[in-house]
Write a protein that binds this DNA or RNA. Sequence first.
DNA 1: CACTTAAATGATATAACATTACATATCAAC
DNA 2: GTTGATATGTAATGTTATATCATTTAAGTG
Lengths: 159, 159
Amino acid sequence: MQNDHFQPHDHARCISTAVDAAERFCAAQGLRLTPVRRRTLEILLSEHRALGAYDILAKLDADGFGSQPPVAYRALDFLTANGFAHKVEALNAYVACTHPGADHAPAFLICRSCGVVEEAEAAPDKGPLARAAREAGFAIERAVVEAQGTCPACRSEHP
Amino acid sequence: MQNDHFQPHDHARCISTAVDAAERFCAAQGLRLTPVRRRTLEILLSEHRALGAYDILAKLDADGFGSQPPVAYRALDFLTANGFAHKVEALNAYVACTHPGADHAPAFLICRSCGVVEEAEAAPDKGPLARAAREAGFAIERAVVEAQGTCPACRSEHP
DNA sequence: CACTTAAATGATATAACATTACATATCAAC
DNA sequence: GTTGATATGTAATGTTATATCATTTAAGTG
């Protein structure tokens, strides 16, 4: 794992790194990181927890952007399509990607206690699922891999 | 994999096997497989595809059971709590379990083309995710593992 | 610069998924 | 048969997500 956001860390650096990476990627690809999109990314980056689309919408509204659902969903679509954020299916919520840019297969460790979502690499060609898929002749295009449990910080608090 | 529901198979046997297993398990555990619950299981078993709660509700209503959402959600809660069915998070929909009874960690292969959902074993202690969790000191309690792609039958039809 | 076109945003409405709360009915145990 | 626990019926509401159409903004072209 590149990082461990269950532990205290320099979070300002998480934000600036991710925003910088998104900016560079968009510049290189001719994508437009517009104000709503950029702000949505910053909102997601403000915590390592998954936020619901309507939580994000409320913040965007407070910041003077539109107040209707498509405002948030469009920004999230852009961010997820380009790998700057991911949807956590088990929570119907969204997290910023902390190593964006490249096309990658995310897996998540979701702490039930503090809500922190840590991103790991899914390695879609390895593991038991990949083996089952090969046996069945099934071609995997996308994998949702989300583990729920408790992080070390929460377990040491409530032992 | 115990089975391969992407291919033609004796589906009546799938149904009777699963219903029988549920009946035996409930008898052994003192659980009540009431008419709504049993019918909900049969509805789920009627296809190897994931059904939305409201699809199920419509069928229950047509069969003379209640017509309000809690009717379906309560039956689904019972079935999922006891391992007779699972929720597919990526689809917000439900599938019958084809090898119910024991507490197990399901993984799914979901065909985007025909909608068939095949259940495999997630093997939560193996694979890259388990390794990442161990490194981070994260204790996995539940894992959502859902691969989306195309099944062999669909690929041979649309090559 | 003016025009064109594509992309993005604003706004309304509605669809799809899920839960709370409370009343009634059923079942098993005593 | 009364009691208590479990299950069901029903109304209302909450939460998540999309379709549609009008308007605005940005980028490219003559």
